[in-house]
Write a protein that binds this DNA or RNA. Sequence first.
DNA 1: CACATTGCCCAAAACGTTTTTGTACGTCAA
DNA 2: TTGACGTACAAAAACGTTTTGGGCAATGTG
Lengths: 359, 359
Amino acid sequence: MTRKGDQSMTSRKSTRAGEVGRRIGIRDVAQATGLSITTVSHALHGKGQIAPATRERVRRAAEELGYRPDPVARGLVSGRTGILGLAVGHMSDRPWAGTYRPYYAAFSAGATMTAVERDYALVVVPSDPASGLWARVPMDGLIIVDPVREDPLLADCARRRMPVVTDGRPIDPGYEDVPTVESDLEHGMAEVLDHLRDSGARRVGLLSGPEPDAYTQDSERLYREWCAAASRPALVETPAASEDPVEAALRLLSGPDRPDAVHGLNETYGQALVIAARRLNLRIPDDLMVSVMRESDQSCGTEDWDVPLTALSLDARRLGAESVTMLIDVLDGKAPRNVMVPCTVVVRRSTLRTSTSRP
Amino acid sequence: MTRKGDQSMTSRKSTRAGEVGRRIGIRDVAQATGLSITTVSHALHGKGQIAPATRERVRRAAEELGYRPDPVARGLVSGRTGILGLAVGHMSDRPWAGTYRPYYAAFSAGATMTAVERDYALVVVPSDPASGLWARVPMDGLIIVDPVREDPLLADCARRRMPVVTDGRPIDPGYEDVPTVESDLEHGMAEVLDHLRDSGARRVGLLSGPEPDAYTQDSERLYREWCAAASRPALVETPAASEDPVEAALRLLSGPDRPDAVHGLNETYGQALVIAARRLNLRIPDDLMVSVMRESDQSCGTEDWDVPLTALSLDARRLGAESVTMLIDVLDGKAPRNVMVPCTVVVRRSTLRTSTSRP
DNA sequence: CACATTGCCCAAAACGTTTTTGTACGTCAA
DNA sequence: TTGACGTACAAAAACGTTTTGGGCAATGTG
């Protein structure tokens, strides 16, 4: 009774030791070595004062039995799971178009790599609040990609004091303290607009988007500021939420003072501009220069178009990596500063006029 | 003492209720409603017999306090975490080339989508056993992509009775019972080889790979069987592990009885074949037809080559989806049958001779 | 010999739930 | 009046760890 490892739990459990298929736990190691589970735990993790011989004996027994501490139980006591969440939108669309958006693919790839390097695991959950998945999966913190207006996840995280960082600035007030990773649109937009101007564009337009996210807001604001600084008119057109963007492109290009260069806020809009230009018999780039924002340098299919488009290319991979680094910093108690990730302009044929021809 | 909710834990804890920043738990809801945690749990989950009024009172209090049951604690008692693991290789390579392999990207995208639809979360971990990450993150089951010879993960999973499915057949004996998702190479290889023959190829060669995985083994075996059935010679060349595949391609194409069509087991080998052909002044497709296995229909960059290559295209997205479905079936106690996912031949210029010219 | 120190180990608490097993009370039938 | 039964809740066990606070010898110290 006093000698062998008869900790209460151990002896109590021994009655059901005969069960088959049970996962082997720390109790089994304790029982095998005749020690207490306390000693086993300490021996395996290098804590406490354990005789070296005992430590080795425990090690061997654990190895032989194939024991691994249950991450769930360990997580319960430590309060840490080692899991980072990544909430992305557009995952409930059945055609899956969203998932394969190159931006998400590249972002999550970069995030996963960085998480693994820092010994965290990354789990992707839909930001759709209807799927309560994000609340059901244990995680230490959450990365929210492109928070929307009155984002339910953001609000929920704040309530539960769940550490959170966002990719793209939250647009609602009250979240100014949420650490954020952003693309450096300020320089990127200036660079691409300057490029259009330097390539000979007189009237630069913008095909904006209906989404109320920070990216759209900032892009449009920076465009208007650039126009104002250059004393040029701001020519902005925005497709309605469900409208074919080609219609908006046609509106933009049909006026008497039509732009001779347009920047589209995403690749779809770029395609819409190309289609609209063809319908209006505008040659690219001679009659109309087109540039687009590209979600990732990994974008597929772009080369398939008839005209390779000059692009302001976001570094989604690095944005993902920086988000993870930032979230881990938050978990470690550091209060990180916001991070700007540069985006680069890749010049292609759609803004390279063969001669300095003018329409 | 008898009336209000003075369950032992509740009263014991009340001393530390003053702490700030604590996550609010079921105890707080119990305290707020004056009920026991048992009743709260039952009320929130629709179990037991609770008066409708009480149930509603609990619901309201929980909502007001923003209570969500801790997934970790819940997982400890239920034994389920709702997390599926996906082990992929090549994640420790610092240049990250592996991660961006289209196969993994498409596979994990498909797997994530299906997991989410089935209310599971999916976490990607490196299959590198040095990183013990996969053992530290709680998961209900694991998908192992392309198990290698004497795969440590596979062995570990078997020891710990962790439910596991593989993408690609395990090559070691003893794992015949592991449920597996595979590409239907049997039909795919036949289709692409038949296509080469029907396009006029007399001598079809194979640029194989040094990897000892099931895909390479099966492809080579099927190729040899096809050759035998067609009474043609088998022309196989394999680059050494660290050799430039162009060298192997040159060997294959330099002999006196060189093949006039070659199938490469991955896109890199296809590129090597194109380079080798150019060096040897062989025109594609007139002097040499080239086809390749493509990891995914989402492959980037292929269009950039000078010659669009005919491809045997794997449906990585669907492979990922089927793997998840299969793993969930295992978790639900079903013993699923192995699944074959068809792969499709996409004919491009590299096997389309302009005329029926012969070298 | 009395007392502190050290080395080695163990029992129990704690983590936050769910599940099992009670218990008090009221109602109804015999 | 009594036993059976139903209702509405509570106590405690259980999940598998880690952490806390010792306990018990053996050894050293005065």
